[in-house]
Design a protein around this nucleic acid. Structure first.
Length: 691
DNA sequence: TTCTCTAAAATTTTT
DNA sequence: TTTTAGAGAA
């Protein structure tokens, strides 16, 4: 099986694997389910399995597809594989790399190639949450539904849920409960609008690939043959449609390897269904199951505390993690009088860990349930001069200034994208409000053209006060004192020129040269200047220069980042499904900082010292999950995930009162604290009255 | 009609 | 504390 004689000298990557891991890495063809407990070397197994397939000649790198949920995970795995492949035997083979990516990036790549087969143009736009919400709010209003009765966020959730279950709006209309009629109507209009805009949202990326596969067997055939070996990371987090996608692809060869841990399933709100992992064995008969139960990360005390919590769950596969790390300090539980003193304690303790215990900033993470908890922590860490980085929260590409600038590019690339049009035309006040906007979109829908054509035909009307469309070449700019005319919109003429210029730049491909004719960075700089956005930020009136300066800096960073891209589409795609700043996390810049993040975003990471703050009833477990046994169990798993991030030392803190909005709320300690055996705990009670 | 300022509301987790 | 909605000013 291993070809041991021939390749023995080049198989040293198999050294140091335990029996379970070895079995998983070297397992041959056919379906395999790897139940990997926290810290059991899951990433190692999945990456070495890919390496092993390549090294033993079973598969070419391009025959392997690895699907993950985060870009970070995908990058990390690719990097490990690259190192393993070039580290050994690099003398004789020029190995390519297997394709590891997130579900969303993978689907996006396929759709860019085959969008026409499902009735989209290949230049389709991708709407992020913000774009979708904007559109939904408008749709709800246009349907005369009171926004207080159907909140856009609720409608969005309904639509996401439907798409995650592979239910289109026609089916939703048929099957929906009577009291959900509004939602179905919104879903229908939303779907049609997206089509008109030549746009897809995140859910569509996966939905449409499944549709593509189901309606075009030759396409499915092609990718099934290409990706003979499929691996899925964090399989417990897959939802119905992701599972379906994987099954479609893997159906032909059934060389499917999924890795997951039901105890770490924390994304059910996103549609993840634990059933996918629980029923895997049934779906693939003859499937092998390998359990990785040896933990290489945490001390026994940490592991015991974590398992005693998660054992309270009814719905789980029984498993027990073991470790060799018997010594270790007890768990510190800190009871604070207020959220401020909680933050103060964390800062003080981190200072002590660094000064006295020999830890450095990068060894330490502070985890919380909700992003809003980070503010006080930041404040206290800053006051204690502790360097920190915050992860999660607002992504770089979601920032207003970045979205504003990019909306010009997005609109130029896809002139049917009304959302980007509105954003770009309004981000700098040029006298275009609701009415003007409506006038333009009306022209577009009446004539069945895209926005740009409508803008062109409407433009002279705006400039000269004429209603008849005139040839673009005949256009003259207003001189602001022109023949006493009405309806002057010099700003819109300028805006139109910007878009035209961008469009021309995009089409100006230098055939025999590299990349695009005009560099992306120049285009962005041009937008920044010509739109007046720069002037607006720099002359930013009297207030908030701090914020404006930040924005100016961010735009500079955007321009820097844009240098690396070869095409507009690549750049826009990346901005939609990836965040280049995540790249910085693993290495370099942030290596010297304490990490602040939510427990969700800490999944997959490890730190010598971990603080989990805010262990209070109604915060963790969160109030919204208290009425439901299933969601309470998920909170418990979340707690399990948080604790198992720690290698050596863990602090759990809670506060008797916490400010929420204007007032203080008084909370009880989290039930999770009670679920940890007392002999594992060392308790400290806050003596600070204020802070 | 558009822009700006003030007041109120809102806060789980994410590709 | 930040974002959004509504009202008044230009």
């Amino acid at each position: 099986m291993l070809n041991a004689e021939k390749t023995e000298d080049r198989m040293d990557y198999l050294n140091g694997l335990n029996d379970e891991q070895f079995k998983a890495v070297t397992y041959g063809d056919g379906p395999i389910l790897i139940l990997a407990g926290a810290g059991s070397g899951k990433t190692k197994v999945i990456t070495l399995r890919a390496v092993h397939l390549i090294k033993t000649g079973k598969a070419k790198p391009y025959n392997i597809l690895g699907l993950t949920f985060t870009n970070k995970a995908a990058r990390e795995m690719k990097e490990r594989i690259r190192k393993a492949l070039t580290g050994i035997g690099s003398d004789d083979v020029d190995y390519g790399l297997p394709y590891f990516s997130t579900f969303h990036s993978f689907c996006l790549k396929l759709l860019r190639r085959h969008a026409d087969l499902i009735g989209y143009s290949k230049s389709f736009a991708i709407f992020d949450d913000d774009d979708s919400s904007k559109m939904l709010t408008k749709i709800i209003k246009s349907l005369n539904i009171d926004i207080k009765i159907v909140a856009p966020s609720k409608a969005k959730y309904f639509i996401e849920k439907s798409k995650n279950s592979y239910i289109n709006f026609e089916e939703a209309r048929e099957t929906v409960k009577p009291w959900e009629k509004n939602y179905a109507a919104i879903y229908e209009k939303y779907s049609k609008r997206l089509r008109e805009n030549n746009a897809m949202d995140f859910g569509d990326l996966i939905f449409n690939v499944v549709k593509l596969f189901q309606t075009n067997s030759s396409v499915l055939e092609h990718y099934s043959n290409l990706y003979k070996y499929i691996m899925v990371d964090e399989f417990q987090d897959t939802n119905f449609i992701q599972d379906k996608l994987v099954k479609l692809l893997a159906d032909k060869y059934k060389n499917i390897c999924v890795v997951g841990d039901d105890d770490q399933s924390i994304y059910s709100f996103r549609g993840a269904s634990i059933d996918n992992i629980l029923s895997f064995e049934k779906v693939y008969s003859g499937c092998s199951v390998i359990k990785l139960e040896k933990n290489y990360r945490s001390t026994r005390i940490i592991l015991n505390a974590a398992s005693s919590i998660v054992k309270g769950n009814k719905f789980r596969k029984d498993k027990t993690l073991r470790t060799d790390k018997y010594s270790g300090s007890r768990i510190t539980v800190y009871q604070a009088n207020s959220d401020y003193s909680e933050g103060y304690f964390v800062a003080r303790e981190i200072r002590r860990l660094i000064n006295e215990d020999g830890y450095s900033n990068k060894d330490i993470a502070v985890l919380y349930r909700a992003n809003s908890q980070s503010r006080i922590l930041e404040d206290k860490l800053m006051k204690a001069s502790i360097r920190y980085s915050i992860y999660g929260g607002l992504k770089f590409y979601q920032r207003k200034e970045i979205k504003n600038i990019l909306s010009f590019l997005r609109f130029a690339a896809n002139p049917r994208d009304v959302v980007s049009f509105e954003r770009s035309v309004q981000c700098v006040p040029i006298g275009v409000g609701e009415k003007t906007l409506r006038a333009i979109t009306d022209i577009a829908s009446k004539n069945g053209t895209d926005i740009l054509v409508a803008l062109k035909s409407g433009l002279l009307g705006f400039v000269r006060g004429l209603n008849t469309p005139t040839l673009l070449e005949d256009r003259t700019y207003p001189d602001n004192k022109n023949n006493g005319s009405y309806n002057n919109k010099p700003g819109i003429a300028n805006y139109f020129d910007i878009i035209l210029k961008l469009k021309a730049d995009m089409e100006d491909k230098v055939e025999d040269g590299p990349g695009i004719g005009v560099r992306l960075a120049d285009m962005i700089a041009f937008i920044y200047k010509a739109s007046g956005y720069e002037a607006m930020l720099k002359n930013g009136a009297l207030k908030a220069d701090e914020l404006d300066r930040n924005r100016i800096e961010n735009i500079g960073e955007l321009i820097n980042a844009s240098h690396e891209f070869e095409s507009i589409v690549d750049f826009l795609d990346q901005s939609a499904v990836d965040d280049f700043r995540e790249n910085l996390n693993d290495s370099g810049k942030d290596a010297t900082n304490v990490s602040l993040m939510t427990i969700h975003s800490a999944k997959g990471l490890e730190f010598p010292v971990v603080f989990i703050v805010g262990l209070e009833e109604r915060l963790f477990p969160h109030a919204r999950s208290l009425d439901n046994e299933l969601s309470l169990e998920e909170e418990r798993r979340l707690c399990y995930v948080g604790i198992t991030r720690a290698k050596e030392k863990i602090y759990l803190t809670w506060s008797k009162k916490r400010r929420s909005g204007k007032e203080y709320k008084y909370n009880m300690p989290s039930r999770f604290l009670r679920e940890i055996p007392e002999n594992l705990i060392e308790e400290i009670v806050d003596t600070y009255e204020y802070y």
